[in-house]
C-alpha cells in the first residue's frame, strides 16, 4: 500500500492551546522541523489528504506560523480542530449555514466548516483562543457581564462574528446588528447578544 508517512495522533504541531497534550506527542516517529516554533515542538507530514494531493500550507493561527501538510480542500475548521487542536471553534452543520464554526481570516468573519484551508494560505487566522491575549476582549467581557451563554456551544462563533462586526462598524444600528449577526443559537441567547 502506498501511502504518505502517517503517524498516530502524535506527530503534530503544538500551539500553546494544545500544550496539555504535548506530552503525548514526543514519541512521534517522523517529523519536520517547524520553522517558527520552539525546538520542542515539531510538525509532521501527517495530513488529511493523500500523499499525492497534500501540500504544505503556510498560515498563521493566533499569531503563530504553521506549515501544515494537508489536502488543500480540507476545511479550515478541521485543520484548526484536528491538526492544531484548537477546539474552541465548533462544528455543527458542515454547510456554512449555522455559523458556530466562525473564525477570522485576516479579520473577516469566515464560516470555517466550508472554507478550504488553501484559501487561508499566507493569511492570518484568528480563533476564539486568540481573540485576545488574556481572554478579555471587550466582547468577552460584555458576554460575561450580561451572562449571555446558555449551552455556550455557538458562542465562540457569535463572539467572533460580533468582534468582526464591531471592528468594521464600532457603532452598529439595530438593523446593522441584524444584518451582521446571522449565526444561529438554538438556546436563543439573541436577547442578550443584542
Amino acid at each position: 500500500m502506498t501511502r504518505s508517512p502517517r503517524l498516530m495522533k502524535s506527530g503534530r504541531h503544538r500551539s500553546r492551546a494544545g500544550a496539555h497534550y504535548a506530552a503525548f506527542i514526543t514519541h512521534a516517529a517522523k517529523r519536520l522541523a517547524c520553522k517558527t516554533c520552539p525546538a520542542f515542538y515539531s510538525i509532521s507530514k501527517v495530513g488529511l489528504g493523500s500523499g499525492d494531493s497534500t501540500m504544505a500550507i503556510d498560515l498563521s493561527v493566533n499569531g503563530v506560523r504553521h506549515s501544515i501538510d494537508v489536502a488543500p480542500d480540507t476545511p479550515l475548521l478541521w485543520v484548526v480542530r484536528e491538526q492544531l487542536e484548537l477546539t474552541g471553534t465548533k462544528f455543527s452543520c458542515g454547510i456554512a449555514q449555522c455559523g458556530v464554526c466562525t473564525l477570522h481570516v485576516d479579520g473577516q468573519a469566515v464560516r470555517s466548516c466550508s472554507f478550504p484551508v488553501s484559501a487561508a494560505a499566507g493569511r492570518n487566522v484568528t480563533t476564539i483562543e486568540g481573540l485576545s491575549p488574556d481572554g478579555n476582549h471587550p466582547i468577552q467581557q460584555a458576554w460575561i457581564s450580561l451572562d449571555v451563554p446558555q449551552c455556550g456551544y455557538c458562542q465562540s462563533g457569535q463572539i467572533m462574528s460580533a468582534a468582526a462586526l464591531l471592528t468594521r462598524n464600532p457603532n452598529p444600528s439595530d438593523a446593522e446588528i441584524d444584518a451582521g449577526m446571522t449565526n444561529a443559537c438554538r438556546c436563543s441567547t439573541y436577547h442578550r447578544i443584542r
Binding site: 498516530m8 495522533k9 502524535s10 497534550y21 503525548f24 487542536e85 484548537l86 477546539t87 474552541g88 471553534t89 465548533k90 462544528f91 480563533t127 476564539i128 483562543e129 481572554g135 468577552q140 458576554w143 460575561i144 451572562d147 449571555v148 451563554p149 455556550g152 456551544y153 458562542q155 465562540s156 463572539i159
Partner: peptide
C-alpha cells in the same frame, strides 16, 4: 447569580464531548 461556566464558555475553553481528545484515539 451569574452562571459559573460562562467565563470558560466565552473563551472557547469548555470541553464539550466533541472536544475530548485521548492519546491513541
Amino acid at each position: 447569580q451569574k452562571n459559573l461556566d460562562v467565563p470558560h464558555k466565552v473563551r472557547g475553553k469548555t470541553i464539550y464531548g466533541i472536544d475530548v481528545r485521548l492519546p491513541g484515539m
